[in-house]
Design a protein around this nucleic acid. Structure first.
Lengths: 201, 201, 201, 201
DNA sequence: AATGAATGAGAGTTCATTCAT
DNA sequence: TATGAATGAACTCTCATTCAT
């Protein structure tokens, strides 16, 4: 059965990717060596090249994998929510949770030389997809009159960048759980900021 | 006469630091080589070692330099303001401006292996200093009853991380000037979030 | 099968060590470069690092190897001799032969910064072992009344240093064979010096 | 006055040489850097090149200087002695003392790449001079019938190499003074070895 | 004469990648 | 397919020496 082969191959790829993710928690992608990955994944160094053309491709797969997961989870956790305010709360909570799970995500996003790697195609597309999902939530809120009517793109970017900043900070300095009052305060602030004045505005 | 020498030496150090800053706009500190710096600063590679013990020391100086500048500017631009709301507005605007000038700042902060370098002492102290400056603004606002009375540390961290996130995003994706409506919207959101309800809350 | 691998690896290590030994005949360990060793051993420079952690480790292995060989040979060639006088003659002859084979031995011993390298443990232990072997011969001679009864340590050190001095000189300036009358004269002198007066004394 | 200049220049050369001698007590000539010498001699590195063409020339001067001193002292301390046995005793004692004062002497002699440096001329001539002095003592002993009649060159080399070996060992491992019984034993052994049998032989 | 500054050449070491089995 | 071995290229850093004042 060809399928069996295929499945095993995929599983070995996956374990190399996971080993790399582990390492990314401690080091930047530039200081991770193929030796590190080999040791961590329990393969011989040369074997890794049977599954990935080179270090760059491996890294790209690692990065696009978590972007894909992120998009999937956002769809699952937020888009089901019909209330835009609740959907937005869920998104922010999710973002914090997610970055706690993959703290290297924003670091990589901040430093990976996307431009140099033709692969932009793939990664940038995923970034766009995420953006569209968030934009969807906001738009719904605007349509039903809950959210302020500023430029959609502006609002989307703001939400994403600001949540990212907070989540990154949170994952770096705070070990406490997700029930922390800090989070609730942050979420309220954001929601208040984009909600048509509970007061007025 | 000695002073002249000293000044010239300092100016050469400075030009190496500036060349490094240039390079940090394009690459991470790990992928910048001493050759890059040599070419960029128009010195022979070996000459750089007359001014900095090694790559690490050079990088540390680059990083601590901008942290120092940042602290100075915050003092200058914000602490003079007696109105806490205005001081906070100034801080956020400044942060955006600053990160646009030094976009590599947050990237370095996110990826530099501070732990490994005993130099924490110096850099962490500077981080603390910045935090204290912001905390000072917030505290004044709380004392005079303008800002909400949440935990000071929580509020401070939130402001810093969120402004950083936004500024980072802004410097990465937006080339437009600082009059952009996005900025105003962001600032209002934050201010609204920490101000004792103009409405209620 | 594993054993085969192991054996081949060992043989490659050995050939690097031998190349280094060759070079030590012409240069000091400090002026031998990894490039020299690479060329001499017909490996790429980088390959050497698969067999030795660094230059220091390689050198240490070279040095301890000949000390081990020396100790083995002394045991084999001298300790079997029951007559202490003959054993001592054998030792001195052997020392000359040995230093002719490895002329860099005493030079290294004289200049290698053992103190700096924690490895003292290993090398100094080997030096001690050699000393004990010679001391053994002398002690036997003292016990059976042939050798003078001076302090054992004093005698041992004298024999070793003096033989070393002679052998070193011999290997540097004399190319002739081991039947040279110089050697016989040297040996007689030493033996006479430590033997209880054939005449009196 | 030209002479005054000349004298000062000479005195500065001398202080650089002395600084180098200091350093040779701790390191090999290969691992001593011009920076080391500069610091040790309290000159700027570039200034050293006003007194010595290059590192090699400086080292050669250091080495030939002590050889000259050695020759002078041998003449002074031994050749005045009319009794050959006493002259030889004096020489050996002197050698030990001298090597204690300049322990790096034999190390340099063992490792300096004389062949490569055309300067052999000078250094080898000095070695020869020393040899002739010792040979002179022995010859006198042979003529007056005290020393054995072996080949003069053989005897000379033996005495020199063996005394060197002992002195080197003594200076490395023994800190005690020159009255040590080890020295007396060594000297007796040598004298006994080259003296026409007090017993017979 | 004295020296701070500058540097080419080269040292040891590492790393992503390929080769050979 | 899996991997031990091999390596070119590149990196950080050092050093003897020269330059410019």
């Amino acid at each position: 059965m060809r399928a069996r082969h295929e499945r095993e191959r995929e599983s070995r790829r996956e374990s190399i990717i996971e080993a790399t993710e582990q390492l990314l928690n401690e080091k930047t992608f530039e200081s991770i060596t193929m030796d590190d990955i080999a040791i961590s994944s329990d393969f011989a160094k040369a074997s890794i090249y049977q599954y990935f053309k080179n270090k760059e491709e491996l890294m790209m797969e690692v990065f696009s994998k978590i972007l894909e997961i992120e998009c999937h989870l956002i769809e699952e956790k937020c888009l089901s929510q019909t209330d835009p305010v609740q959907a937005m709360r869920n998104f922010i909570k999710f973002e914090i949770e997610f970055i706690r799970r993959y703290p290297w995500g924003p670091k990589v996003a901040a430093t990976f030389p996307f431009r140099d790697y033709h692969a932009e195609s793939c990664l940038l597309a995923l970034y766009d997809q995420k953006k569209k999902l968030i934009a969807g939530i906001i738009q719904r809120g605007q349509t039903e009159g809950t959210f302020i009517t500023s430029d959609l793109d502006v609002l989307t970017n703001m939400i994403i960048s600001v949540s990212g900043g907070f989540a990154n900070y949170f994952s770096t300095f705070i070990s406490s759980d997700l029930q922390s009052p800090e989070i609730e305060m942050f979420i309220s602030t954001i929601i208040k900021g984009i909600t048509k004045g509970s007061s007025d505005e």
